[in-house]
């Protein structure tokens, strides 16, 4: 009996610790309708939760707080939303929204953000839904993948969605860099690893690649930030060791991308 009581106490303590940890870092859930922050708004920062091709995740969304789609989530999202509120007239919800390709719910969120897209993969149904989303007017920003191998993996997934898509390098004069801020001189925006390595790149992604896929009318529908990690820059913007230059650039690019997605 005594052993049973001890075991129960340990289990309860473990559960309590887990709950506290989850509260400290956000609920990691797919939205909570009862949350006071879950207000209705025009713009919802929508993070795409996709299936991964990593074996440990068994082809699903993986364990929520260890899956690749949730990198920097939700602090990066919320810090970015704070800047969006301060610097634009967008009526945005202060908390993020996680969207999936499981249902047509994604069509209510015409702007989505995805990270670590080197690990994404799509079922035929998911690929079709994302293709339709983009062709109807949805906008996708991808971030935080580095080097040649990641690029190939990213493109493997992208080809399932848009088989004939052509990826182009964006130039400074492109409209997407001039919607709110004129960003003519861009730099490679590193992840938090820069703080302890001093390197702006990861893997073999030495050069920042500002790329895009356009629709038949020339409008950007997929904005690709390759060899960069804007999400980390947002997340660590309040870290005194993370350079302000990178954080500022990341915020400006993010806001320009959102306004482009809301105007084109």
């Amino acid at each position: 009996m005594k052993c049973t009581h001890i075991a129960l106490a340990i289990l309860a303590a473990s559960a309590g610790c887990a709950a506290l940890w989850a509260q400290r870092t956000g609920d990691f859930g797919f939205g909570n309708d009862d949350s006071p922050t879950n207000v209705k708004a025009e713009f919802y920062w929508s993070r795409l939760a996709y299936s991964t091709n990593i074996a440990s995740n068994f082809g699903g969304y993986g364990h929520r707080w260890r899956s690749s789609w949730s990198r920097d989530y939700p602090k990066a999202d919320r810090q970015f939303l704070i800047s969006m509120h301060r610097l634009t007239r967008i009526d945005g919800r202060p908390t993020e929204q996680v969207v999936t390709l499981d249902s047509d719910e994604i069509f209510n969120y015409p702007w989505i953000y995805a990270v670590q897209v080197e690990s994404w993969t799509f079922s035929e149904k998911e690929a079709k839904r994302l293709r339709e989303y983009l062709l109807k007017g949805g906008f996708l920003m991808v971030d935080d993948f580095h080097g040649t191998e990641d690029w190939e993996n990213f493109m493997n997934g992208m080809r399932l969605v848009l088989p004939d898509a052509e990826v182009e390098d964006l130039r400074s004069g492109d409209e997407i860099f001039h919607t709110l801020y004129d960003i003519d001189d861009k730099m490679q925006i590193p992840g938090e690893q820069y703080v302890w390595t001093g390197r702006t790149y990861e893997k073999d992604g030495y050069q920042p690649k500002w790329r895009a896929i356009r629709d038949s009318k020339g409008r950007i529908i997929v904005a690709i930030c390759h060899n960069m990690h804007l999400g980390d820059a947002w997340e660590w913007a309040d870290d005194p060791n993370y350079p302000e230059t990178f954080a500022s650039m990341a915020f400006r690019v993010g806001l320009d991308y959102i306004l482009y997605g809301m105007t084109h």
Partner: peptide, 16 residues
């Protein structure tokens, strides 16, 4: 338009 919103984008796309 007084604020960025989706209606603006999709009206522009329709008129394009």
């Amino acid at each position: 338009e007084g604020e960025p919103r989706w209606e603006y984008k999709f009206i522009r796309r329709a008129e394009a």
